[in-house]
Design a protein around this nucleic acid. Structure first.
Lengths: 341, 341
DNA sequence: TTGTACGCGTTATCAC
DNA sequence: GTGATAACGCGTACAA
């Protein structure tokens, strides 16, 4: 059953030429006569020769492989990013090696070691929530392996990164709610130790002050899950009057809030408008459909990979790090369009 | 900046011993004196030695890498599977190389070549919708590389596979609807050229006949997207009376149906019960929450990988192929619980 | 235009 | 217990 793999030597033996000639011929080296090249190509095809990438990698001290470290694969946004990464990699002849950190710092460090041991040509990483120190990432640098952050960068590390304009996007959402006539806008924020949570809150605050709306402390709570949002709406209902808009840190949170509102018999968007963040699949199909921000995960993957490949292919070191910002798109749907009410 | 990678030779030089001794010491070979082993371990740690997996792979004609070919990464179910695969792989010291076929047969064939070129230790495949011929998969066999199918197997190829019990699960869903007092149950089916679509329909039919309910042709249409389901409900509403239950091929379809029902002012589950399939994230958070089948994607990934690793580690060839069935779990939620109405 | 010789880092085998 | 040597498959400087 098991056939010994065909190597360059086998082709050479068949044609009674040397392995090196075969090697060159296979790469269409113009130094080799067209005739020989054709012969080699023929035999290679007939024998179903497949170059051993591992051997090539050993020789060149680098494999055509891109390493990816991601907090969790099971996450719509991240799966979009991976898809974008894979697409570009595929088209450029690279393969993708995936590791998930499960949001653990030590596992992330382990992932780095593994990828370096595999001699990957470059690494794409979105740091885990837990990660505080970055020595394991600096390690990558020391080995001369290019590194590009996506979505979540390591604060303080001057490296290439592809990130979202969370602040501006949040600002746009809030502005939109204001334009719809809302003035008492509550924000269900994400954890404030994460840059994304912080930046989105900042954008919200900015839009308020811009519109001359005085912010009130009780308008902002950290609530970033379906359940927390549900409970928070219920609490707001009892403690103070309901606001006329809720801007949530993510879509799931928004859906939790909507569930509570519906149970309270509150009209959406008639009495309370709602907006989320991320453009998960459910934002489009929720009822009413949810206003949100499309983060373009796929594009982020594409951009990050292109940037990485550029680094891999450029010999020059010491080029200044690049920060690419992928602009989030405000998607206005039914939960916020007062016009139709 | 760029440091030359530390190799076994560097350690050997430092300790003035031979590379082979270092190699053995690093693997805790008992032939090597404890003293030497400790010295080696020390120096390795100090120099931050990292074994070059590529070189090892070349030597052993196999790399500790598992190849995965998947139709689309951006799919909740598949992302769960990948997560399960990665988890097991990580714990066993393997890494995961991901390729997506984008449901294209030729790309799938390409993926196979790439993975073989990378000398992967084994391959996990879920075949694309388009794939008809399987010569590229037989190629894997010829190279002596173990192959395990997950979710979608190649019909006719006697290989290891981990699949869902679609027929039985669909049957359970339908039975449940019948138990809730439904008798005019409509099925929005998936494409009938895919085994999953076919099997689910079969399960539905089986449950009906089992309960002595005569099936009527107009009860079953192929509608497997949000929009199609929406339109189909609207059509049913006009053409014939609405059924008292709708069993959909997947969750998204169910949500489309629900949207239409809600617009028609039909009570769910009071007048029409609804059930989906897949247990996507939105089934839990939809309002009312959706009865569905949990396909345990993560578990499928885990099982498939374990099976693959078993094959990789067993020398014996010619062991009969194994088919593992992951049982889907009926998750009863609000769209079908008549008891509460 | 082609062949020779060597090395990439690791490990299996044989020798001491 | 340890060392020397060869080999995995490929690429390339150098020689012819």
């Amino acid at each position: 059953m098991k056939t010994a793999p065909v190597t360059i030597k086998d082709i050479a033996r068949q044609l009674k030429i040397s392995p090196s000639t075969v090697s060159r011929a296979l790469k269409n080296n113009p130094e080799i006569s067209l005739e020989t090249r054709q012969h080699v190509a023929e035999v290679a095809a007939r024998l179903d020769y497949r170059p051993n990438i591992v051997a090539r990698g050993l020789k060149q001290r680098q494999s055509a492989t891109i390493g990816v470290i991601i907090p969790e694969i099971v996450h719509y946004f991240f799966s979009q990013v991976i898809s974008g990464i894979e697409e570009v990699a595929y088209n450029e002849g690279y393969t993708v090696m995936i590791c998930q950190s499960n949001e653990k710092s030590d596992r992330e460090a382990n992932n780095v070691r593994t990828l370096l041991a595999h001699q990957v040509a470059g690494i794409l990483v979105s740091v885990s929530k837990e990660t505080a120190g970055f020595s394991h990432l600096e390690e990558v640098d020391k080995n001369g392996v290019p590194l590009v952050f996506f979505d979540r960068a390591a604060p303080g590390m001057a490296k290439d990164q592809v990130i979202n304009d969370n602040r501006e996007s949040a600002c746009r959402v809030t502005r939109h709610l204001i334009q719809q006539g809302c003035s008492r806008i509550v924000h269900f924020a994400g954890p404030q130790n994460l840059s994304i949570g912080k930046e989105r809150k900042e954008g919200y605050l900015h839009a308020l002050s811009e519109a001359g709306i005085a912010f009130r402390e009780e308008w902002c709570t950290v609530a970033d899950t379906f359940d927390k949002a549900y409970q928070e709406v219920m609490r707001l209902h009892q403690v103070l009057n309901l606001p006329d808009a809720i801007f949530c840190n993510n879509d799931l949170t928004a859906l939790g809030a909507m569930k509570a509102l519906r149970q309270l018999g509150v009209a959406i968007p008639g009495e309370v408008a709602v907006a989320g963040f991320s453009n998960g699949i459910f934002s489009e199909i929720s009822d009413p459909s949810l206003t949100t921000v499309d983060q373009h995960g796929y594009d982020m993957g594409v951009q990050a990979t292109r940037l990485l490949l550029k680094r891999i292919n450029s010999q020059k070191e010491g080029e200044p790090p690049v920060t690419m910002v992928v602009r989030g798109d405000l998607i206005i749907r039914d939960t916020s369009s007062r016009g139709s009410v």
